[in-house]
Amino acid sequence: MNRRGDKDRRDFVNDVLDRTSGSPCRRALELLPDLTDGALASTDRQLVQGHLEHCTGCRAVAMAMSRMGEDLVSLAVLDPGEAFTAAVLARTTARTVAAQERRRAEVASRGPAGLMDRIGRWLQRWIAAPDFAIQAAYVATVLIVALTALPISPFREAPGKMLQAVQASPGGLPVVGQAVTWSTRQVETGAAGLVGRVRSGFDAAWDDASEDWRDRSARSAADRGRLDASLDMAVDEFMDGRPAAAGAKALEAYRSGQAAWSAWWAAEQDSSEAVGP
């Protein structure tokens, strides 16, 4: 019983020493946050409040702490102004577009879908080309001439009939109807023959072109071989660190190329001369 009483006394003394020894200001400052929050046990609260009554430095810190809570909360929001939202939207939009481009590139590198995507982009570039309108007008003119102005054109009488219809207007409207009927009949009856003629003509032209191509290839073969060899040697010399020798070989390649070019076109000149007057 006495032992237990001794232990209680020792614990009490140690507890009091713990709470009161060392720097009283340091101890009070440690406990100030809990005091401000109302979370301090009554013994400690009395000790700290007793210290604050006599210590102006710690009292000033306690006052500052009790007040700063609402000041800190008022710093939680900083308005960046109207331009901020627009700037963020511009950046996220730009990234979205870039991501779409990346995805499109990934698709372009895969399978049939990629092939279709490449074809689509090629057409898009072609249509967007500055001279597309001129090319389209040229093709349209050729088609109109082929359909209406040549001796074998299926609609060669159509312009005359349309002109008659316009000149006879409005009494000549039936002529327009006749022209349309005639054109339709021409298409129905003459399409098969036209297709056959076009196909045979195309085959003959293809054969001629193939033969001509073979002739030209044979004439220029030797020079093209020298061109390839010179180019290979030029690259080798360059890779071996001999730029002067590489330049000489490149010059040889240039001359071989010129010769090959002349041989190629000489074939056409010969054939032109052969069929000339």
Partner: peptide
């Protein structure tokens, strides 16, 4: 919090 309160006092934000 104690350090901030001390800094406020040091900057003149006392009683």
């Amino acid at each position: 919090r104690t350090e901030l309160a001390q800094a406020i006092v040091d900057l003149g934000g006392g009683p």
